[in-house]
Amino acid sequence: MQTGKASWLRLRTPVLWLALLAAMGTLSLYASPYTVIMVTNILMYVILTVSWVLFSAPTGYISLATAAFFGVGIYTSATLGGQLPLPLIILTAGVASFVLAALVGALTLRLKGVYFAFFTFGLVELIKHLLLWYEVSVTGVRGRFVVSADNVTIYYIILGILVILLLTSYLIRRSRVGLALQAIGEGEDAAAHTGINVSAVKTFVFALSAVFAGAAGAAMATRWGYVDPYIAFDYLFSFTAVAMAVFGGLGRFEGPILGAVVFAFLRELLITRFPYVYMLVMGSVLVVTILYLPQGLVQLAQKSTWRRLRGHREPA
C-alpha cells in the first residue's frame, strides 16, 4: 500500500538509529571484553570526528585543535583522578576545553581560512611544550599515572558522550544557530549584515565542539593508565579527525560517522603490527578522496554513482 510504504520511509531512519542504539547499549552483555575495548576505541574516533565536523563543516574553517582539546581532557583526568568522581572529572574536562576553545576562538576566528588552520595546528605544539617545560622544571616528572576505571564503564561513558554529541549536532543543524553557521560558511560579510553576530556564533560553536573532545579525552585517559605530554597532545588526533571526516563526506550527517568507523576499524586491525602501513593508507586515502571523491564515501552510497561506476568501470 502506498501510504504504508510512505510512513515506513519516514520512520525508517529513526527506527534504524534506535535499533543501533539498543545494540550498542547492550554490547557488554553479549560481546567479548576484547570487542568492547575495540568498539570503545572506534567510538572515541567517531566522537573526535563528529565534534570536528560540528564546527568545521558548515563554516569551512579547518580546525586542527582537536588534539589540544582532547589533551586538555586527558590532563584533567590525570590531575583530578581519584579526587573527584569520574562523571565530575569528565564534566570538568568538558568545561576546561570549552573555556580554552572560547579563548582561542575569540582571538583567532577572525583569521582567514588557512591561517586559522595553522594557528590551531601550532596550538597543540604550544601546549605540549609548555606542559613539558612545566612538568620537568616545576613538578619534576615527565609523565603521570591516571587512576583507571574498568573497560565496561569507560565504554558506556564514551557511548554516552557520543549519543549526546550526535543529538547536539542534530539539533544544532535544525536550529537558528545551525542556519547562522550555514550563512557564515556561505559568506561572513553578508551574514554579518543580515544581523548575525558572526564572531559570537563561531566562537560559541567552536567552544561547544571542544567540549566533546575534552570529555572523550578525560574518559580515555582512565584506560591508558599513564600519560605524558607527547601522548596527550599528539597532533595525529587532529589530523585523524579531519581525514576521517573528509573520507566519509561532509555533506551528510552520516558521512563523518561512516568515515570514522571504517578508518578506526582499519586502525584497530593494523596499528599494533603495521603502524606505518596504517598511516600510509590513511594519507593515501585522504589524497585520493580529495582528488576523486569530493563528497566522500557517502557519494559512493548514492545509487547514481553505483550505476555510473558499473557502467563505465572508471579507473580508480
Binding site: V277, M282, G283, L286, L291, P294
Partner: peptide, 22 residues
Amino acid sequence: FESNSLLASFGLLFVIQNVALI
C-alpha cells in the same frame, strides 16, 4: 582550493613520512 590543497598536503605528509619510516 586553499582548504583542499591543505588537506591533500596532510595526506602527502603521512604518505612521505611513513614511506620513510618503512
